[in-house]
Deep mutational scan, measured.
Amino acid sequence: QDAKLCERHREKLHYYCEDDGKLLCVMCRESREHRPHTAVLMEK
């Protein structure tokens, strides 16, 4: 099964943002929008 990719950055989605309920890639996780949020690394 292929991992889902971030629509914005075309990177694999490794994080779940608990504040927004969205899946994030590393680039999104470090963005100004999500940096202050609680995001957890998803298990494989």
Rank of each mutant, 00 (worst) to 15 (best):
Q1A: 13
Q1K: 15
Q1F: 08
Q1V: 11
Q1R: 10
D2R: 12
D2I: 09
D2C: 05
D2H: 10
D2K: 13
D2Q: 14
A3T: 15
A3P: 15
A3H: 15
A3E: 15
K4T: 07
K4D: 09
K4H: 15
K4N: 15
K4P: 03
K4C: 08
L5M: 15
L5K: 04
L5Q: 04
L5N: 04
L5H: 01
L5G: 04
L5Y: 04
L5R: 08
L5S: 04
L5F: 02
C6S: 02
C6N: 01
C6T: 00
C6Y: 06
C6V: 00
C6L: 01
C6Q: 00
C6M: 00
C6P: 03
E7P: 13
E7I: 08
E7D: 09
E7G: 09
E7K: 06
E7C: 12
E7A: 10
E7Q: 08
R8S: 12
R8F: 15
R8P: 10
R8T: 13
R8E: 14
H9R: 01
H9K: 02
H9M: 00
H9C: 01
H9S: 02
H9L: 00
R10K: 12
R10N: 14
R10L: 09
R10D: 10
R10P: 10
R10S: 13
E11I: 04
E11P: 02
E11Y: 00
E11F: 06
K12R: 12
L13R: 12
L13T: 12
L13P: 15
L13W: 08
H14V: 14
H14R: 11
H14Q: 15
H14S: 15
H14M: 14
Y15N: 01
Y15P: 06
Y16A: 08
Y16N: 08
Y16F: 15
Y16V: 09
Y16S: 07
Y16M: 05
C17D: 04
C17V: 02
C17H: 06
C17T: 05
C17P: 05
C17G: 06
E18F: 01
E18N: 11
E18D: 06
E18A: 08
E18S: 06
D19E: 11
D19W: 04
D19M: 09
D19P: 03
D19L: 03
D19K: 07
D19S: 08
D20L: 02
D20Q: 08
D20E: 05
D20S: 09
D20Y: 02
D20A: 05
D20M: 01
D20N: 15
D20T: 10
G21V: 01
G21E: 10
K22F: 01
K22L: 09
K22C: 08
K22G: 04
L23D: 09
L23T: 09
L23Q: 10
L23G: 07
L23V: 07
L23R: 11
L23C: 03
L23Y: 12
L23S: 10
L23M: 13
L23E: 12
L24K: 06
L24D: 09
L24I: 06
L24N: 03
L24G: 08
L24C: 06
C25P: 02
C25H: 01
C25Q: 01
C25E: 01
C25K: 01
C25S: 00
V26K: 14
V26L: 09
V26G: 13
V26E: 14
V26Y: 10
V26F: 07
V26C: 12
V26W: 13
V26I: 13
V26A: 12
V26P: 12
M27P: 02
M27Y: 11
M27E: 12
M27A: 09
M27N: 15
M27S: 12
M27I: 15
C28A: 00
C28R: 00
C28W: 00
C28Y: 00
C28I: 00
R29Y: 03
R29E: 09
R29H: 06
R29A: 06
R29F: 04
E30P: 00
E30T: 07
S31E: 15
S31K: 02
S31R: 05
S31G: 11
R32H: 13
R32I: 10
R32F: 08
R32W: 09
R32D: 15
E33I: 13
E33C: 00
E33Q: 08
E33W: 01
E33T: 07
E33D: 05
E33R: 04
E33V: 04
E33F: 02
H34Q: 08
H34E: 07
H34W: 01
H34D: 03
R35T: 09
R35I: 03
R35S: 09
R35K: 12
R35V: 05
P36R: 12
P36Y: 02
P36I: 03
P36E: 15
P36S: 13
P36F: 06
P36Q: 14
H37R: 02
H37E: 09
H37M: 00
H37L: 01
H37N: 06
T38G: 08
T38P: 04
T38L: 06
T38I: 07
T38S: 10
T38C: 08
T38R: 14
T38N: 11
A39F: 00
A39L: 07
A39P: 06
A39D: 11
A39E: 09
L41S: 07
L41C: 07
L41F: 04
L41N: 13
L41I: 15
L41M: 11
M42E: 10
M42S: 08
M42Y: 07
M42V: 11
M42I: 12
M42K: 13
E43S: 09
E43K: 09
E43R: 08
E43M: 07
E43P: 12
E43W: 01
E43G: 09
E43C: 03
K44S: 13
K44H: 08
K44G: 14
K44E: 02
K44C: 08
K44L: 05
K44M: 04
K44R: 12
